[in-house]
């Protein structure tokens, strides 16, 4: 099969890493070879797949030794069910240029030929704050972008902003980057699913999966596991497995049409 490369973007704290890790876990249980790459200096994307341990990041190794002395096994770690995990890492908060760190990580992974497998899942920091964090969308890396959002306005606002970035990048001649859908990681607000589905429709996409808020997510995290591993029989685990199936079956990849802020607010008011 053709290698699938997907990226999850969304507001900070919305649950991208939890969703990514559970998605990767569920995909691996379909018998697929999965590579998950955390693109955030906070480096906690793959932690649940690694049973709570923070793996050394690519940027940690570059900082200690320079990129010449690094080998592939030092940056790729095998987690739950063989999911391969990489953390880009980055500078300490408040110094340097984390965006350039992402670019350097991609170049290094490219050099090692590490970007292989059936599916690569890129879990990217909060917002597309600069060109560096748009890197996973560029140069033909992630071709399918999923927005993770709740029904809260600020979260939709961030998702809408990311639509602007995708829109800009997808207009480039050679760009294959497209919006693949919206994942609602719910805060259990009234009419949240309807709201996010309507938002998805308005930005020329669709709601791929509604994931309700469930305490099992926190309990699994406290046990340093994904929900898929911790409680495979739970309804929540089934939501993630459905998401994984839909991601694999998805063929609707669009150029998004971001909303004006006034329209976005009016939309949120409509579903209050």
């Amino acid at each position: 099969m053709v290698m699938k490369q997907i990226a999850l973007y969304g507001k900070g704290g919305i649950g991208k890493s939890t969703t990514s890790a559970n998605l990767s876990a569920a995909l691996s249980l379909q018998g697929l070879d999965i590579l998950q790459i955390g693109c955030d200096p906070k480096r906690d994307s793959t932690r649940m797949l690694m049973h709570g341990s923070f793996i050394p990041t690519v940027m940690d190794l570059v900082r200690e030794r320079g990129d010449a002395a690094i080998s592939l096994p030092e940056i790729v770690y095998s987690g739950f069910n063989g999911v391969r995990c990489v953390e880009a890492g980055g500078p300490e908060p408040g110094v340097g240029c984390a965006g350039r760190g992402i670019i350097a990580t991609f170049q290094l992974l490219e050099k090692f030929g590490a970007l292989t497998g059936d599916v690569i899942v890129y879990d990217v920091l909060g917002d597309v704050v600069c060109g560096g964090f748009a890197m996973p969308m560029r140069e033909g890396y992630a071709q399918e972008i999923y927005l993770v959002t709740s029904g809260e306005l600020m979260s939709l606002y961030a998702a809408n902003n990311i639509c602007k970035a995708i829109n800009r990048l997808s207009s480039r001649v050679k760009s294959k980057c497209r919006l693949a859908g919206v994942i609602c990681n719910a805060k259990n607000q009234p009419r949240e699913e309807e709201l996010v589905a309507e938002f998805a429709r308005r930005v020329n996409s669709s709601l791929v999966q509604f994931i309700p808020r469930d305490r099992v997510v926190q309990v699994a995290e406290l046990n340093r596991q994904t929900v898929i591993e911790f409680d495979p029989g739970s309804a929540q685990a089934e939501h993630y497995r459905v998401l994984a199936r839909r991601v694999m079956e998805n063929t609707r990849f669009t150029i998004p049409t971001p909303l004006e802020i006034d329209d976005l607010e009016a939309l949120a008011v409509e579903f209050m």
Binding site: M59, V62, G90, V95, G96, C97, R100, G101, A104
Partner: peptide, 10 residues
């Protein structure tokens, strides 16, 4: 170098 840019040049 690129590494200095990523981690800060101070």
């Amino acid at each position: 170098s690129e590494t200095d840019i990523i981690f800060g040049g101070e």
